[in-house]
Design a protein around this nucleic acid. Structure first.
Length: 696
DNA sequence: CTGGAGGATCTTTTT
DNA sequence: GATCCTCCAG
């Protein structure tokens, strides 16, 4: 069965319910109990069937949250309570959104069409903002800046103000502005004290100017996708009303990760039909540094009077020992709602804690374990190494290369952030919209064609005085004699190429166009002539880029997609060990999980402690909790007494989290004998601190 | 304007 | 150890 898409302008609340006699759902209802409800436990079922009114589902790790979410949506659709287009469903990643769509389809049979409002906050934000761009001072075709563009723009701003970038890095300003945007603060609303925190009091002013610059170049950054929509909702009640009316049911996944701006958004929208269901786990809130507010979940009942709260506490993933270790650890946190996970499983082995002399030994041991598990028949796919910081990954990669064990780095260096990809995209973006100044500036002299800084400055000046884009200014200057002959000729050639490429845009498949552009611009040749070791990989990436474009209908569709989805999917088919950060591991599960690097200063990370104090420590502890609860059968925690950081050897103490693990669920492995064997006796408090060594 | 040498700074996590 | 930036000679 296919659910028909609804006309977006059809807001008639009294429209007949979209269940047709004879359709699958109607049949299922007639038989009393639809198949999709089978196999749910009592709480899960309640979470699915409590469709009306505000609802908070506190879903512990591994309690079948995704299943509840998708079943709930399927239930709303199948019972005819709403059309697909009347449901707002927010997820945190694009991947989660797609999976949810697929799973709903599987539940009610067939493909779900018309679920236009299922996506990430940002994806939904763009959609709304494109519809009302003029209310935010933008034109509908506005471009979306990523962090890199954002920083380059801010750099220009700092330069214009003669601010020393050494003392006041653009990065810092960017995160300051991001922080404000995450809290829903437009420039005029930032608290007086905070506005003065940067560059001798210029912080607030720079923020305001940055926002103006964005409008001039017709662009929005990531934060704007939330903030500008929020502003529109606040300042234009008619628009807000339209959306309040449209969204009969609202569903929010990972509620513990929402920031203030997102929260304000949701609260405004939920005042319409008041059917808002938030699903989350306060114990898994690990994005505080990005502006997420655990408070949002802690105060849900106050914010939405009459809200029901359902706890999912039955865990279907892990063994009693793993749950016991994780629960014992998280119990040390003070600010939490409190949940008790339980499982029916009996078979269990304790969580192993191991001490190592240094990081290399740690990597060797884990590598050996993985090989031996593999020999016993475990799949590499079902094993993961979860690290606190990405620099830890290297030693494992090195080790796996030596051993010949295939591995994949999840969420590693992102495909679309690589320089060569960004360059190639810049060319394509300019073809799609020539007035994208940042893109144009990026490639005007890449590959080198003799157009240097001075010439670019001149173009900038011309653009500003004439109130035109950089591209138009370049076009103009390529026809006059203001530039040196050589430069002018080079610019001429470039501009001619662009107009030629744009003309062929309609006639050619976009993948072919991309190949032509990369070829004729000399970009491919640039890397072919480059003899550095990574040049080959870059050429590979460019090919991959063209290949991935093929999945989209046209150039515009592709560009819109990648501005929101910064990564390409990796195929999970090959059997490989997973290496990723703890943050990236949220929501995943593995039979065997390795948790290396549990050392004071690294985990909990020193910076988290310095910057956020006790709150920071609690967030780190939640991160540890997330790590342990990823494991289904086995978890190995380890620490090294010596670790190389920035090429310096540092000795470290075992993480306090190790001491906090409940003894009854933990087994301390004897220390490896390769360095003389300092065996550990029975487990006890501060056991490892006595074992620590001074610097070498 | 280009390219290379030398220097500073870094590494938490990312939609 | 790597990358990014600045400075200087051609």
């Amino acid at each position: 069965m296919t659910i028909k898409p609804i006309d977006l302008d059809d807001f008639d609340d009294d429209a007949p319910r979209p269940v047709k006699p004879g359709s699958l759902s109607a049949r299922a209802l007639a038989q009393g109990e639809p198949a999709y409800l089978k196999g749910l436990n009592a709480e899960q079922r309640a979470a699915v069937e409590t469709t009306d009114g505000p609802l908070l589902v506190l879903a512990g790790a591994g309690t079948g949250k995704t299943r509840v979410l998708t079943t709930r949506l399927a239930h709303i659709l199948a019972t005819g309570k709403a059309w697909p287009g009347q449901i707002l469903a927010v997820t945190f990643t694009n991947k989660a959104a797609r999976e949810m769509k697929d799973r709903i389809g599987a539940l009610i049979g067939g493909v779900v069409e018309g679920m236009t409002w299922l996506g990430t906050f940002h994806a939904i934000g763009v959609k709304i903002l494109r519809n009302h761009a003029e209310l935010a001072g933008l034109r509908s075709g506005f471009s979306i800046l990523d962090t890199d563009d954002q920083i380059r723009l801010l750099k220009q701003l700092l330069e214009a103000h003669d601010i020393d970038e050494k003392r006041w890095p653009a990065r810092q300003l960017a995160s300051l502005i991001d922080g404000w945007k995450n809290r829903g603060l437009t420039p005029e609303k930032i608290p007086a004290g905070e506005a003065h925190g940067f560059a001798n009091g210029l912080g607030g002013k720079l923020y305001a100017e940055y926002q103006q610059r964005l409008k001039v170049v017709n662009a929005a950054d990531f934060g704007d996708l939330l903030l500008e929509v929020l502003r529109i909702f606040q300042e234009h009640p008619d628009v807000l009303k339209e959306y309040q009316r449209r969204f009969k049911y609202m569903l929010v996944d990972k509620y513990q990760d929402t920031n203030v701006a997102q929260y304000l958004w949701l609260r405004l929208l939920a005042q319409g039909h008041r059917n808002i269901c938030c699903v989350g786990d306060d114990d898994q809130s690990i994005y505080g540094w990005r502006g997420a507010e655990v408070d949002n979940i802690l105060r849900f009942e106050k914010d939405f009077p009459g809200a029901k709260v359902i706890r999912l506490e039955r865990n279907y993933r892990s063994t009693p020992d793993i749950l016991g270790a994780a629960s014992g650890l998280i119990a040390k946190n003070e600010s939490r709602l409190g949940k008790t996970l339980r499982t029916d499983r009996e078979e269990s082995e304790p969580v192993t804690v191991r001490s190592h002399w240094d990081g290399d030994e740690e990597a060797r041991t884990i590598g050996d374990d993985i090989e031996s598990f593999q020999r016993k028949g475990d799949r590499l796919n079902d094993m993961a190494i979860l690290v606190r910081a990405s620099f830890q990954m290297r030693s494992f990669e090195d080790r796996f290369i030596t051993l010949g064990v295939p591995y994949r780095v999840v969420g590693g260096p992102r495909f679309y952030e690589r320089a060569e990809i960004r360059d190639a995209l810049a060319y394509l973006k300019i073809i799609a919209s020539p007035d994208n100044d940042l893109a144009f500036e990026r490639i005007i002299n890449t590959p080198k064609r003799g157009i240097g800084d001075t010439s670019v400055k001149r173009m900038h000046g011309h653009a500003r005085s004439q109130g035109i884009s950089l591209y138009r200014a370049a076009e103009a200057l390529s026809l006059t004699d203001e530039l040196p002959n050589k430069t002018r000729a080079a610019l001429r050639a470039l501009m001619d190429s662009f107009s030629r490429w744009r003309q062929s845009m309609d006639g050619l498949p976009h993948t072919e166009l991309a190949e032509i552009v990369l070829d004729e611009s000399g970009y491919t040749a640039m890397w072919q002539n480059d003899k550095s070791p990574e040049a080959e990989g870059r050429l590979e990436n460019l090919k991959e880029l063209v290949r991935s474009m093929g999945e989209f209908e046209n150039l515009l569709g592709f560009l819109e997609h990648i501005s929101l989805v910064m990564d390409v999917e990796q195929s999970p088919d090959d059997d490989k060990v997973n290496i990723m950060t703890l943050h990236a591991a949220k929501g995943l599960e593995f039979g065997t999980v390795f948790l290396p690097g549990w050392e004071e200063g690294l985990f909990p990370h020193q910076r988290a402690l310095d910057e956020k104090g006790r709150a920071g420590l609690e967030e780190e502890r939640r991160l540890a909790y997330v790590g342990i609860t990823r494991a289904k059968r086995r978890a190995f925690i380890s620490f090294a007494q010596n670790r190389r950081v920035h090429n310096l050897w540092q000795s470290a103490l075992p993480s306090r989290f190790i001491d906090e693990l409940p003894e009854s669920h933990v087994e301390v492995a004897p220390m490896s004998t390769s360095y003389g064997g300092y065996g550990l006796g029975s487990y006890g408090k501060s056991r490892f601190e006595e074992q620590s060594f001074t610097n070498t």
